[in-house]
Design a protein around this nucleic acid. Structure first.
Lengths: 155, 155
DNA sequence: TCCGATTAGATCGGATACGATCTATATCCA
DNA sequence: TGGATATAGATCGTATCCGATCTAATCGGA
C-alpha cells in the first residue's frame, strides 16, 4: 500500500480522510433519515435493526448481531425498546431457554413495507452510481473486519 | 444479498443496504483502529478530532465542529479529555471571551506525526482503489448533508 | 449422574451523538 | 447608555457502542 512516493505523511492523511469520510457519511445518514424516522418514533439504529429483522422471522439475538456486527450488550436494550413500541416480539425459545427469538410484528412489517419508503433512496443523491458505491463500501468494511480478526481472507 | 423480485421492496432494500454498509463500515473502522489507538490511550473519535486539529492551530470549537460535523455538546467533553491527556490546549480567546481556542500540543503533534502511522492505511486493504472509494464516500456524505438542509447545490 | 466448561443474553460503566436548554459574553440600536 | 438580541460554549437527558462481567441454561466427560 502507500504506493505514493512520499508515502508517509500523505498516506496518513489519506487514511484519515477515508476513515473520516465514512465516519461523517454515517453521521450524515443519521441526520438525513432522522426527520423521516422521527415521525414513526424510530431511531436510526432501531430502523436498521428492523431491516435486518425483515429478512427472517424467529432470529436469535446472536444471529441478528452477526448481521448487524453488534452483540447482546448493544442489541438487548434496542430490542427491548422496539418490543415496547410494539414493532417486534421477543420470546424465549422453549427448546433452548438461553435463546431469545425475535420477529417483526404485523405493525412492524407494515411500517417497513408501506409507511417508510422510497424517500430514503432519493436522499443519497447517487443515482446510477448507487450500487457501485454500495459495493465499494461493503468491501471496505469487510477488509477492515478481516484485518481486525487477523483473518487474511483476501481477494 | 437476497435480492427481492419486487421493485418496491428492492428499492427500499438497496437503500437500507447502502446506509447499512456505511453504518457497519464505520463500526469496522472503529474496531480496526482500536487496538492501535488503545496503545496511546486515544479513542477513535478523539483521534479524528486530533486529525482535524492538525490542519490549523488556534481553531475555535465551532470551526472544529464544522469540519467534524459536530457541535459543542459533543465536542466539549471530548476536547476536555484530550486536554487532560495533554494532547491539546484549550484557552479562552482574550479578544472574545465567548470563544475557546484549541490547538495540538507538542505531544499531540508528535503522536500524529510519528507514533501513529502507516499501519492505519494498510488496514483498509483497498490498495489502488483507496482514493476512488474515498471520493465516492465523500460525495455520498455531501449529498446527504445537502438533502438534510434542503440545499440543492449539486455537482 | 454430577460437576466443570460452554453458550446466550443481560447488566454495568465509559465514551460518543444529539436535541434542548442554560450561562456568559458581545452586539445592536433606540 | 441600557435593555433586547445574538453568539459561543457548556450542561443535561436519551440512545447508542463496546469491553468486562454476570446469570441462567445446556453440554460433556469421567
Amino acid at each position: 500500500m502507500t504506493r505514493s512516493p512520499k508515502a508517509d505523511t500523505k498516506g496518513r492523511k489519506l487514511s484519515s480522510f477515508l476513515c473520516f469520510a465514512v465516519y461523517s457519511a454515517n453521521l450524515a445518514f443519521g441526520r438525513a433519515y432522522k426527520p423521516i424516522l422521527d415521525a414513526f418514533g424510530l431511531t436510526y439504529t432501531q430502523y436498521i435493526a428492523m431491516i435486518a429483522l425483515s429478512e427472517a422471522d424467529e432470529q436469535t439475538v446472536s444471529a441478528l448481531g452477526e448481521k448487524l456486527f453488534l452483540e447482546s450488550n448493544t442489541l438487548t436494550p434496542i430490542l427491548k425498546k422496539l418490543e415496547q413500541s410494539g414493532y417486534i416480539s421477543r420470546t424465549r425459545d422453549p427448546a433452548d431457554e438461553r435463546q431469545v427469538r425475535v420477529s417483526l410484528t404485523a405493525a412492524g412489517r407494515r411500517l417497513l413495507d408501506k409507511e417508510i419508503n422510497a424517500s430514503l433512496v432519493e436522499a443519497t443523491g447517487l443515482g446510477d452510481e448507487f450500487p457501485i458505491v454500495q459495493k465499494s463500501v461493503v468491501r471496505l468494511r469487510d477488509n477492515l473486519l478481516h484485518h481486525t480478526r487477523g483473518d487474511a481472507k483476501k481477494g
